[in-house]
């Protein structure tokens, strides 16, 4: 059985059941009713499921991940020492804007494994940047003056005293 997913722009993506199973809302939409009503809602393949908040480019990117994980379990929450496989890190990349869209979509579509990967990707992009660099990256204006910044360092930089007590 295959399912048609329709992006925000109206583009259709035909995916197989194991791939669609990775997407929580699609799974619930297509088969969830099966459990309660005794039959599946999406009996007619041609109907398709509209994912109104997800653009075609992001949906196709997400489907690459779903295709990769159709037969194996992705990493999920609960292990603080988790290490993502190389494939995952190469997949998520370093494009902050794209990762943010993937994160939003993974949240909306209920894909916990991809959501965690996107969070990890964002954390890696932010790694080692100073506040100004972060603002430039995110396209936001810094809320704090230099003086406030110095105060925040004083207030919150206490772990440095632990690392280098003087």
């Amino acid at each position: 059985m295959s399912i048609t997913l329709i992006s925000k722009e109206g583009a259709q993506f035909l995916v197989s059941k194991p791939v669609a199973d990775r997407i929580g809302v699609v799974r619930d939409c297509a088969y969830g009713a099966d459990f309660w009503l005794g039959y599946a809602v999406a009996t007619d393949d041609s109907m398709g499921i509209t994912l109104a908040n997800v653009t075609s480019s992001i949906l196709s990117k997400i489907l690459v991940w779903c295709e990769h994980y159709k037969d194996m379990e992705p990493l999920v929450d609960g292990d603080s020492n988790m290490e993502f496989p190389e494939w995952d890190m190469a997949y998520i990349g370093h494009d902050m804007n794209q990762i943010l869209f993937v994160l939003e979509a993974a949240d909306y579509l209920h894909i916990p494994g991809l959501l965690l990967l996107a969070c990890k990707g964002i954390a890696d992009v932010l790694d080692g940047r100073n506040p100004r660099g972060i603002c430039d990256l995110l396209g936001i204006v810094m809320d704090f003056s230099h003086r406030q910044e110095v105060d925040m360092d004083k207030e919150n930089g206490y772990w440095r005293w632990f690392l280098h007590p003087t």
Partner: peptide
């Protein structure tokens, strides 16, 4: 902390 300093 760098992230914290970027916005409220």
């Amino acid at each position: 902390l760098s992230l914290a300093k970027s916005c409220r």
